[in-house]
Design a protein around this nucleic acid. Structure first.
Lengths: 208, 208
DNA sequence: ATAGCTATGTGATATATATCACTGACCTGT
DNA sequence: ACAGGTCAGTGATATATATCACATAGCTAT
């Protein structure tokens, strides 16, 4: 399958590598809300985000969940990488955040390339490291910060993702991503509005 | 510097690789409590634990901290790996848990070997993955579990580390590792003792 | 325009954990 | 055996968050 080379823009990936990605991968389009990777499912492909973004969540049986990090354009899901190789079931859920175009690479290719192409190996290592630091900051937030600070940081992350100060999200969604209750989020958001840091309307929060 | 080959037992590391480790590494001994890696310090060596164990903590400025995971014999600190390469300051603190013998590898060697020796690359990737999952379980614990459950799991981890049901630890240490207060731990331990799950004495907790 | 749905606002109350204040128990060095 | 330190036990209280219960607001389809 031949895909459009122009679409693949990954930092520090050389042309030979890019050719491999094009020859072996398949491009698919997804809509916001689509689930790319289910918790406890087996992993057969490595998703590389070409456009849009995914969010990766950890989920508890009872439906409670918490946001781990976002996967942006030019990045991939490291959990899929070694998880796929060791034939693990996925321990996380990946959901499309913004409408996305995703390049799916068979997991065995992704593995082979590590020893063949230094730029690929480097790409994977750098991402592992980035995710590791992001997870660390989740741990940090949960251990040392109160929920109001965490809400502010989450809103800022969403702003950075899209560059838009108008964030389309419900209180329930924020509560889910923070692993808390909707009422808690509503109250704290109201407080932030009183402090003139944000303004609230239905399905939308605007950063001031 | 030539070190004793017999001491180096790392799963799936071949002899050529082992020779490299011996030729380029230095063995040092540390006592329980020694700090191997300070938060915010630069990283110049990759520590491989030959005997004993380390614990890796995340620390907040005000002295509050939380346990991330243990590094056991035959393992290394992945945070040091790419952190060292990108010349990052360490975001974690590593403390010797049990008296340890540690092989220190210059960080540039560790990096070079990734492309030269597939077994080394594999070793590093597998560890990244393992740590990733451990961090995930820390996130999980903090998000979804109450402190009493977390104490029980921490005691079990410590038991698995040494194989000894008598655990030498103070309530303060447990509180630090869980990121909570000593009184909270004392009360919950007392409760566990009433339930006949453990028995308490000064500096020691015995799992029943 | 109405019905029905989803999202939000908010009081009341429950619970887990954090903090403060103090006591006594145990250990170590002299 | 005593002094001074560290460790553990525990009441009282404060705080953050979770849960329950309900009211109202805004959107959507007919």
């Amino acid at each position: 399958m031949i895909t459009d080379s122009a679409k693949i823009s990954i930092p520090n990936i050389d042309n030979e590598m890019k050719q491999q990605l094009m020859d072996n991968g398949t491009i698919k389009n997804f809509k916001a809300g689509d689930v790319i990777l289910q918790e406890n499912s087996y992993i057969k492909t490595l998703p590389i985000v070409l456009q849009g973004s995914l969010k990766v969540m950890r989920e508890e049986e009872d439906g409670k969940e918490i946001l781990l990090y976002y996967i942006k354009a030019g990045e991939t899901c490291v959990m899929s990488f070694l998880g796929g190789i060791s034939n693990d079931k996925s321990k996380v859920k990946a959901v499309v955040e913004e409408d996305s175009e995703i390049l799916l690479i068979p997991i065995h290719n992704a593995q082979d390339w590590v020893s063949k192409y230094p730029s690929w190996c480097d790409f994977i290592f750098k991402l592992y490291h980035k995710r590791f630091e992001e997870l660390l900051s989740v741990v940090n937030a949960m251990a040392f910060q109160k929920i109001d600070q965490r809400i502010v940081e989450l809103l800022n992350k969403k702003y950075q993702l899209t560059g838009n100060k108008e964030i389309s999200v419900t209180h329930q969604q924020l509560a889910d991503e923070l692993g808390t209750a909707r009422e808690v989020v509503s109250r704290l958001l109201k407080q932030l509005e009183r402090e003139k840091k944000i303004s609230l309307s239905r399905n939308k929060i605007t950063i001031l």
